[in-house]
């Protein structure tokens, strides 16, 4: 564990708490993509299969995995049931097959071992890299967003961004590289570039998140 990964994980935790806070206080999931949230459930379920196979990394690792699975399922429940009337499926129209199918094919091609758990692990890494697309698509379509929704997206972007210095650190301290995670992680972080530009130049200056026309 190093400071980059720790703060990355904390940013990831923060993003979930921000999202829960937004939904609970506004009693609305307006502007939140159910599809992105469902993809995260798929990501966690397929990546954390090792939980059920007796692989033990650390108490921290297990606790976080259980939290990510539990909280992502809870968020789906909130959107689908508790606040379903505030969810607008007509805005959330990104076709998830375009993300699921290529991620699965990439998982079949690029993996560390051709076994179910390893292919699923790779699939989850590729899927996570692009899972934010439906959420960004809603932003794109509406052209604006509540500040709290943008804080959620920013925390998610910071999370994966911080993993990059973590990998550089691990390369020098342990001599190990995880090429699949690194390539997907760089792509994932890159997808936030446009968003971050608007976020840092507008939202953090106290202005509304509005995309240029």
């Amino acid at each position: 564990m190093n400071i980059f990964r720790l703060f990355g994980d904390l940013a990831h935790l923060a993003s979930i708490f921000i999202l829960l806070h937004k939904v609970q206080t506004s009693r609305s999931c307006r502007g939140i993509s159910f599809k992105t949230q469902a993809l995260y459930v798929a990501v966690f379920m397929t990546r954390y299969l090792d939980l059920f196979l007796g692989t033990w990394v650390s108490f921290y690792n297990t606790l976080m995995k259980l939290f990510f699975i539990g909280s992502s399922c809870y968020i789906l429940y909130l959107i689908r049931f508790q606040f379903r009337t505030t969810y607008d499926p007509n805005l959330d129209t990104f076709r998830v097959e375009y993300l699921l199918v290529p991620s699965f094919i990439l998982g079949l091609i690029f993996n560390y071992e051709f076994t179910l758990t390893e292919v699923m692990w790779s699939f989850s890494i590729f899927l996570e890299a692009v899972a934010i697309f439906p959420q960004l698509f809603i932003l794109q379509r509406t052209g604006e967003a509540e500040a709290i929704t943008t804080h959620y997206i920013a925390a998610l972007g910071i999370y994966r961004g911080l993993y990059i210095p973590n990998w550089i650190y691990r390369y020098y301290s342990e001599g190990s590289v995880d090429p699949i995670a690194v390539v997907a992680g760089i792509v994932q972080t890159g997808l936030y570039a446009d968003f971050f530009y608007v976020y840092f130049t507008k939202v953090l200056q106290g202005q509304r998140f509005e995309l240029p026309a």
Binding site: D9, M64, Y112, Y163, G175, S176, V177
Partner: peptide, 10 residues
């Protein structure tokens, strides 16, 4: 060790 390491990250 390169290239494989057990998945110890989240």
């Amino acid at each position: 060790p390169y290239p494989y390491r057990p998945h110890d990250e989240l």
